[in-house]
Amino acid sequence: MTTQVNGLDSLALRADDMATQNNSENLTADKHQDVEVLETIGENILENPKFSTRNVNVFYGEKQAIFDASLDIGQNEVIALIGPSGCGKSTYLRALNRMNDTIDSCRVSGQLKLDGEDIYDKKMDPVLLRARVGMVFQKPNPFPKSIYDNVAYGPRIHGLAKNSTDLDEIVITSLERAGLFNEVKDRLTAPGTGLSGGQQQRLCIARTIAVSPEVILMDEPASALDPIATAIIEELIDELRENYTIAIVTHSMQQAARVSQRTAYFHLGKLVEVGETNLIFTNPRHQLTENYITGKFG
């Protein structure tokens, strides 16, 4: 915890420094200035990525939400997607597990590959894809079922448990990994909707883990939670990194700094800059990224 706080302080200091610097000198000579982003700056391509996306465009009817984004996500890393509101971060995330399919007017083009397989290929089954790529939503959405049944839902429909003892094991392990088991172990039959906001979100995480996905997509998972619950979730993400690849959309730069190894900055649907989290926040290479980080907008 202490290191994180120090990190925050140094980040704030750096931001202030940069602001004063920019105001006094023209240090921006080597920064990319174009408001028209022609190419993504930084390390958006990796070797052996878990997820590999190239030239992704997403349209809602006539309106285009994502412009030509190419980004790789590495194995067992946590990548944060940041940017101002409404700039397509959630849209991009939802393209990764084909949740955009549920919206009639939504069209996705480009190449998106999971472990080298094109996920938008006609032969790729969205059901199967979503068993491998799970999602946690902004507002906790537990089913109106018991805590046990919430977590058991996924394994049940996919037939992952051979018998009820197996299922019990899966549920308990998932709840433990989500850091919720100790708080609910005496009331597994209580309705999931009766938990607090933070507990509900952890329940949703447990629910997602129960299906043993390879990737977990998180769409602003802590934005509806109080600071303590948020802190618990952030610690959880760090632990989950051991077993899963995680992509997290977040509004909070501090959160991105705390939990992720790489960060991608989206601006009005364009992927502007990608890089190691520390470097992005201390030395952004694009003017737009710097403007966002120093709080000039968003």
Binding site: V127, L128, A131, R132, I157, H158, G159, L160, S212
Partner: peptide, 15 residues
């Protein structure tokens, strides 16, 4: 992940 196979097997009935 071996789960993928299990899931694949369940798909036919489910569809």
């Amino acid at each position: 992940m071996n789960n993928t196979e299990t899931v694949k097997n369940s798909l036919k009935k489910r569809y």
